[in-house]
């Protein structure tokens, strides 16, 4: 019984949140890694792209809620998601046309593109704050829980409850769908194959008649869709706040680099590695250990390795370790 209680407590406080957070990071890291693979630079504006997409979703959700439209037990934001993706696609394509294409034609060094993306970051950040303001916005509705802690206790008779938020369930399902679609697209369709070819060897791809501008355009469209989805899911799970998306940049980049920049599988693995380490290291293990330890050996402290405020330190340390021992990441990324 104690063992089961420990397991439930572990799932409730560590496994479920980490899986949801990992899915969000993985979706974000996929965007970063695709840009890196195709356009060959680290996009500092990615966090703010997520914020922009999520912002449109928030606005459309409010509109739908005002019009009385709802999605039953599911959050209305899911209905708003397609509009948000469209809006985000328009934004990134306009940005690419007005900003990035010039440097692509000039064959500018990757680091110049990174600085350019800093400028784009400023503008997107400003836009989001301008339109929706810098404050917290709540836009989730529908059922809050798939299983609430009380129901779970009543159902199983255990002392510990397991709560799964609707947003967590949706996050995982959406992430799986997005990843399956992405891999199907990359591996089975002609366009996807041309993207991989372009990423692997630009010159050979150009030689075989692949249109680079088309590849770049499709990359941006996919990235916008992934970023918006990640942004909306994160917003549903926690809350929407523009600055938080900027801060997500670090764990997202850490995920992409740990997995190997340019490798989609790596981005997903990296996302979960970062998420699980963050949650396990900042979780106070007292509860779980109290169930597991024999009678009089129970821990007296919280058994928390680091306070939650240091979660960035966790992604950073993992990033450093991987960079020092395996500079191209776990899944053989590329190095420009």
């Amino acid at each position: 019984m104690d063992f089961l209680n420990a397991l439930v407590a572990l799932s409730n406080f560590v496994l479920v949140p980490a899986i949801a957070y990992g899915s969000q990071l993985a979706l974000g890291a996929l965007g970063v890694t695709l840009i890196y693979g195709i356009l060959r630079f680290s996009n500092f504006a990615h966090g703010d792209t997520m914020a922009f997409g999520a912002m449109i979703a928030v606005l459309v959700t409010w509109g739908l809620q005002a019009a009385g439209v709802s999605f039953g037990p599911l959050p209305t934001a899911l209905l708003a998601l397609p509009f948000a993706i469209l809006g985000c696609i328009v934004l990134v394509l306009v940005t690419d046309r007005m900003v990035y294409r010039f440097y692509r034609e000039q064959k500018a060094k990757p680091v110049i593109l990174v600085i350019v993306s800093m400028g784009v970051m400023f503008i997107m950040n400003g836009l989001v704050r301008f339109i929706i303001g810098p404050d917290d916005q709540r836009f989730s509705d529908g059922e809050r829980f798939l299983i609430s802690a009380r129901e779970f206790k009543a159902m199983t008779g255990l002392n510990e409850g397991l709560a799964i938020k609707t947003s967590q369930g949706i996050t995982v399902i959406m992430a799986v769908v997005a990843v399956v679609l992405l891999f199907w697209f990359l591996n089975k369709t002609r366009t996807g194959k041309s993207m991989r070819a372009y990423s692997d060897n630009e010159d050979l791809a150009l030689l075989s008649g692949i249109n680079p501008e088309r590849v770049v355009m499709i990359t941006w469209i996919i990235v916008a869709a992934l970023a918006t989805t990640a942004g909306v899911l994160y917003g549903l799970d926690k809350s929407f706040k523009p600055f938080v998306y900027f801060q997500l940049l670090l764990p997202i980049f850490a995920s992409a680099i740990v997995g190997g920049l340019g490798s989609p599988v790596g981005a997903i693995a990296g996302g979960f590695i970062i998420a699980f380490s963050e949650v396990t290291i900042t979780y106070a293990w007292k509860k779980v250990l109290t169930y597991l330890a024999p009678e009089n050996l129970e821990p007296s402290g919280l058994v928390q390795f680091l306070s939650t405020d240091y979660k960035f330190a966790v992604s950073f340390v993992i990033l450093l370790i991987v960079l020092l021992f395996k500079p191209t990441g776990l899944f053989k990324g590329k190095a420009v």
């Binding site: 630079f41 990174v114 980049f253 990033l319």
Partner: peptide, 24 residues
């Protein structure tokens, strides 16, 4: 000592991270 000698983007991410940690 740890991050230099890595590629430029990695140094960028590493310094971005260390700044957040110092503030934390």
């Amino acid at each position: 000592k740890t991050a230099l000698g890595l590629r430029s983007d990695y140094l960028a991410i590493a310094t971005l991270g260390i700044a957040e940690i110092i503030i934390a």
